[in-house]
């Protein structure tokens, strides 16, 4: 990249005033994304941010790149049209737990199975922020909101399991309180060829404050979270003394020495699925890191390969030939 002007983080800040609530987790994410993007070696004019509707979906306005703030839930479809039309672009999709998993749930699963080379950042605050605090499809059972004054009865999605089930080729989780970790995940996602799905635990200070604190607070996170790092032992704890390993279909706690080595690229997503859910057992830590990382053909590549192939075999299309076919007749 020597000849190119080097991008700085500030080059990616737009002139628009950021309007999230003070203390909102979105600030940290924006900051981290701007830093990572500046170092990707991608030209600014080739950066494209697409979003739906929600607090999180305001994101593109704050990036000095091309951006499309679309409609509620539909960002995956916009991203598909954009990426297929111009595969050169580095496309980033920002969505919320409501935007991406309720109204846009259908588009989400389909974009994941198609495996376009785009990056999806799902800001999960387990609440509808923009509409002032109704429960979302990731809200926990019993959550009291204005829409559920007696507690939510709606069983939540685990976004990681959902993405795995939809056939996503890169699935990861990170937290707004650990920017170093987030930066690493963003870099890995950018490097991945295919759709990268990243769930980000994001604190909504106004409507669902501290919902992740029991696992992500700096004081407890080493004990309560385990980072899945490809090729490394699955260890956690204040002194990295605890481990996890698979015994057949069974996941068990062990000492760090006996811990298994994490492989997110197994032929089936089985082991990833198993890890996605371990924190249903309150004694086990909540996993973050890279759950899944495999290669599969990308949709936009296929589209253009087919166009090239047909153009090669049939020759470039000529409109006149399409109109003036063999079965014509003449009237004098």
């Amino acid at each position: 990249m020597a000849a190119e002007a080097v991008l700085k983080k500030k080059d990616l800040k737009s002139d628009q005033e950021v309007r999230w609530c003070p203390g909102c987790g979105d600030y940290a994410i924006l900051n981290c994304v701007q830093g990572v993007m500046a170092d990707l070696g991608v030209k600014r004019e080739n950066m494209m941010f697409v979003s739906g509707i929600g607090c999180s979906s305001r994101f593109p306005y704050y990036m000095n790149t091309y951006g499309f703030h679309s409609i509620h839930g539909r960002a995956p479809a916009f991203a598909t049209g954009i990426k297929v039309s111009n595969p050169e672009l580095s496309v980033w999709l920002v969505t919320g737990d409501g935007d991406g998993l309720s109204i846009g749930g259908n588009h989400m699963i389909h974009v994941l199975r198609r495996n376009l080379d785009i990056n999806i950042l799902l800001f999960n605050n387990e609440i509808y922020g923009l509409t002032k605090g109704q429960y979302s499809p990731t809200s926990r059972l019993g959550l009291k909101t204005k829409a559920t004054p007696f507690g939510s009865l709606d069983y939540p999605f685990n976004p990681i399991s959902l993405a795995l089930g939809a056939g996503a080729t890169f699935v990861a989780r990170t937290v707004d309180t650990n920017l170093k970790h987030m930066a690493g995940i963003l870099e890995a996602a950018a490097a991945h060829k295919g759709t990268s799905f990243i769930e980000i635990f994001q604190n909504c200070v106004i409507f669902n404050d501290k919902v992740f604190d029991s696992v992500s607070d700096k004081k407890v996170r080493d004990e309560r979270m385990v980072d899945l790092v490809p090729g490394e032992k699955i260890v956690y704890g204040n002194d990295h003394e605890k481990g996890l390993r698979l015994d057949g279909y069974h996941l068990e706690q062990c000492s760090a020495d006996e811990a298994g080595v994490w492989d997110p690229s197994t032929p089936t997503a089985g082991p990833s699925m198993l890890f996605a859910d371990i924190d249903r057992d309150a004694t086990l830590p909540t996993p973050i890191g890279i759950f899944r990382q495999v290669e599969r053909p990308r949709f936009e590549e296929g589209v253009h390969a087919q166009i090239d192939h047909v153009t090669e075999t049939k020759g470039p299309g000529k409109l006149e030939d399409l109109i003036y076919t063999a079965d014509t007749w003449k009237v004098d």
């Binding site: 916009f78 598909t80 954009i82 297929v84 039309s85």
Partner: peptide
């Protein structure tokens, strides 16, 4: 597309891309 909404949204995204 997976439905009519995705169909028009993808088309509009494509128009944004030229």
């Amino acid at each position: 597309a997976e439905d009519e909404i995705a169909a028009i949204c993808a088309a509009l995204g494509a128009s944004f891309s030229g």
